[in-house]
Every structure is written in structure tokens, then in C-alpha cells.
Design a binder for these strands. Sequence first.
DNA 1: ACTTGACTTAAAGTTAACTTTAACAATTAT
DNA 2: ATAATTGTTAAAGTTAACTTTAAGTCAAGT
Lengths: 147, 147
Amino acid sequence: MMKINKNLTISEVSEFSGVAGSALRFYEKKGLIHSTRTSGNQRRYHSSMLRRIALIQVAQSVGFTLEEIILELESLPMNKTPTKRDWERVANKWQADLEDKMKRMQFLKDNLAGCVGCGCLSMKKCQLLKPNDFVQKQGIWHPKVNQ
Amino acid sequence: MMKINKNLTISEVSEFSGVAGSALRFYEKKGLIHSTRTSGNQRRYHSSMLRRIALIQVAQSVGFTLEEIILELESLPMNKTPTKRDWERVANKWQADLEDKMKRMQFLKDNLAGCVGCGCLSMKKCQLLKPNDFVQKQGIWHPKVNQ
DNA sequence: ACTTGACTTAAAGTTAACTTTAACAATTAT
DNA sequence: ATAATTGTTAAAGTTAACTTTAAGTCAAGT
């Protein structure tokens, strides 16, 4: 049975986090996570790394790339449990980015709604679905819609 | 100067939509868009294809993969201007999927907020940041936070 | 001590969504 | 008519985010 507070092996971290060992090694190469080594060169992870990995997972699930996540997490310390301030900094930054993304989605959703609601599909008004002014001016964008 | 309602060449479609010609050919191979051919085998696009391409762009911008977009758009006719019903079917389907995505993001955002608001970072309560029960039970998940 | 299972690395393979290249054909402008 | 531009294909290259493989090393149980 596992001891509390021992350093975790890669397969333990993999099991707990649901992230494949190969991916953990890959993340480490990218500088996203960190491990220490045993005398025999095997990786050992501090338990705080689990939280960091969970954050990475969540960030990915909402569409952040690993490069973006590196930026999001760069102010979170690797080796110590983050302080409240560390955490706040990261969470605020992340929330702002999330808010951005959501605003864009809401905009798209609203415009779609407009298109559906209106009889002629609102193509003339729909900012979303006009590739550019040229098309609009040439009148090739919104031909008659078959009813 | 371009005539209204003529069939569009690939470079015209590319200019209007902002999508590279190579991407348009790629989309066609995937079955996302459609073109007719001149006697000399060059592609010509109906203007309604511009709207379809714009839809593809927008869908991609909110994180749908091309495979997902193929599914979203499969009930939109390729060769004719879509009817109101065609359009409604697609828009409703798409809106539902968007709503799903947004709900997930909101959930994540809320949980992040909880983590920030609480003194101990709410790790024990935060569903989001617990990889699984095991970790929680072993007490390795939420070690003391440095203040 | 020894065997089995877990771990290590480097390098090659995978999928998505394209782009680039090469070699050649069709259109358009003069 | 001819040059310049635009288009065609197939095949190889690109980036992200990994996985798989190969060949060898370490750690744990008996």
C-alpha cells in the first residue's frame, strides 16, 4: 500500500491523473511539469505535481494549447506547493482568458440565433456570416433563399 | 471587374473568404465543399459556397474539428441555396453543440472562482481539481498551502 | 540472487489540418 | 499568337500533441 507523502513514481502519477506516462515525459520535456530523479535515474514526482497536471488537463479540455498553458502556468512554482498569491495570479489570468473565449462563443451563438429567427435568415445583418465587404457589395453573398 | 452571379474561380473564393486555395482543395477532398469544373478541368464555385465556407470558418473558430463540421453541415445542401428549413436544422444542431461547450466552460470557470475565493483554495471541495477519489483518500491531494 | 515488472532514452510513427513543391495545363491579357 | 497568370494533381513536408518501438536499466518480491 502506498505511503502518504512519498514521492510518486511515473506510473502512480499516471494512474492518479489519467495521463499516460509517455505524455508525462513529453510534458516534462516541454517544461510543463517537473520531477526529481532517484540514484538510478528514475523519475519521482512531488504530490503537488498532481494538481499542476490536473490544471493542465482542464485547460486543455477548454481548448488551450500546451504553449498557451505554459504561459498560463509559468508563474506557478514547480517545486513548492503554491501560495495563495501564486494561485490567485494564475487563476485570475486563466479566468480572463476563459471569459474571452466565452464571449466569442456567445457572440457566435447570438448571431446564429439571429440567422434562424429572421425570415430571410438575416444574412444581410449577420456580421458572422459575411466573409467581407466585397462580397456584400457585389451582392453575391445573400442570394434569395428558397422558401 | 467581376460579374455578379458568375461562377467563382478558386482564387476569387480564396480572396473573398480568406481561405487559401490549397485549403479549399483540401476541404473539397474531405467532402466539405463542392465545385463544378470547366471544360479545362478548373474549379468553379457557386456563390452559395461562400456562405458554407464562412460557416466552416466560424465553426472552426469555436473549436469544432473538420470531422465535427462535416457532421454539423451534412444536412446543408451543397448545390442549391439552402431553404429556411435546411438552415434551421443546421443552426439548431450547431447551437445545441455550442451550448454544451459553453456549459462546460462555465463550469470550469465557476470552479476556478471557488478555488480563488476560498482561503485554503477550496481544493477539498473543488471537483475540478481532484484527479480522482484515490488521491483524495490518501490525503496527498490537498497538502497545506503556504500562506 | 534472480526474475519479473517498471523505468529510461532516442527515434520513428500517428492524426489533424493544412502548406509546399514539382511538373504540367488552362485562361487571360496584350 | 504568345506571354503571363492562374489552375491542376500527386506527393511530400509541417506543427501539435502525443504514442510506439527498441534496446537496454532499475527496483521489488521471493
